[in-house]
């Protein structure tokens, strides 16, 4: 069952250097209870895509066109007031740096209680407090920590608090934007474990935004690969990793070393493009080893190949 359907979304940034086409005509569908790994490098538009769903973009960004259908309603058509009801209750977000997203002057338990009361005015304070306690317990924070301030916790624990905050109202979708990038590998593993557990336990969908293809592949059901504002490949994690269709995905897999495999790495030549002047046609064509004359002239369509979506002329 489809929970989220993004159609032809365009999000541009209006900067002094010009218009940055951060997300350009991206469509993506997500099912209920699914974890989708949205993979891309910095500047690929993956975070912008995530922020557009709950409409918390920076002021210089503008949603140009497209729709974001969540549970049957187009979020882009909602008023700011209606949107506020959805944020935190239906869709919540976990960011990379929990320290900047948590209020440093408020006890962690109180922050969770506040979020609950904001969305559920009928719940009593005591009930909310119990819910907060339970949520913290579920994410692995000992109950005696409920009166702690954020600075009394370690980085991993703060991220757990962020996750408790995000899941306490049992939203249908959690958007996790590089939730583990600032953390060490052992802590990262446990945070990912926690997100997977939430998905299983409550059937939440998780959009997991990351630059780490291996991490995404390990934990997500599906992987979406973005490059320079376009979505180039979308399919099941195992398929994408074992038999990448798009040359960029292939290049990415070949360029990353793996601890359990002695292998040669191959670099992707060139640099990611400047999105104020993106390359014509397929935006990957200047770096693509398989490029054809057509690639620089025409933007490839999104094709369905073996149950996967791929945006590449090689498959037409």
């Amino acid at each position: 069952m489809t929970l989220l359907k993004i159609n032809n979304l365009k999000v541009y940034y209006y900067t002094r250097r010009g218009i940055v086409k951060a997300v350009d005509n991206v469509s993506l569908a997500m099912n209920k209870g699914e974890m989708v790994g949205l993979v891309g490098e910095s500047g690929s538009g993956k975070s912008t895509l995530g922020l557009s769903i709950i409409r918390v973009l920076p002021p210089q960004a503008k949603i140009i066109s497209g729709s974001v259908i969540f549970n049957g309603t187009d979020l882009l058509k909602l008023s700011e007031r209606e949107m506020r009801k959805i944020r935190g209750k239906e869709i919540s977000m976990v960011f990379q740096d929990p320290l900047t997203s948590l209020d440093p002057l408020q006890k962690i338990g109180d922050q969770i209680v506040e979020t609950i009361l904001e969305h559920e005015p009928n719940i009593s304070k005591q009930e909310a407090y119990n819910m907060a306690k339970k949520a913290l317990q579920e994410v692995g924070i000992p109950p005696d920590r409920i009166g702690n301030y954020p600075h009394q916790l370690s980085g991993g624990q703060r991220q757990r608090v962020m996750i408790a905050l995000a899941m306490v109202l049992k939203p249908k979708l959690i958007i996790a934007d590089e939730p583990t990038t600032a953390l060490d590998v052992i802590v990262q593993d446990r945070i990912m474990e926690l997100l997977s557990a939430l998905k299983k336990e409550y059937g939440m969908s998780i959009l997991f935004i990351t630059h780490d293809l291996a991490l995404a592949a390990e934990r997500s059901d599906k992987i979406a690969v973005m490059y320079a504002g376009h979505l180039y490949e979308y399919g099941s994690s195992t398929d994408v990793v074992n038999k990448p269709l798009h040359p960029y995905t292939e290049g990415l897999i070949e360029s990353i070393p793996d601890v359990f495999m002695r292998k040669e790495i191959k670099e992707i030549p060139g640099q990611p493009p400047d999105l104020t002047k993106p390359p014509s046609g397929c935006r990957f064509h200047p770096r693509c080893p398989y490029r054809m004359p057509k690639c620089s002239r025409e933007e490839p369509p999104i094709l369905q190949v073996n149950g996967r979506l791929v945006k590449c002329w090689l498959y037409s």
Partner: peptide, 10 residues
């Protein structure tokens, strides 16, 4: 001029 506030591009 010498210390322009850099514009962030996301």
């Amino acid at each position: 001029i010498l210390n322009p506030r850099r514009e962030a591009v996301g």
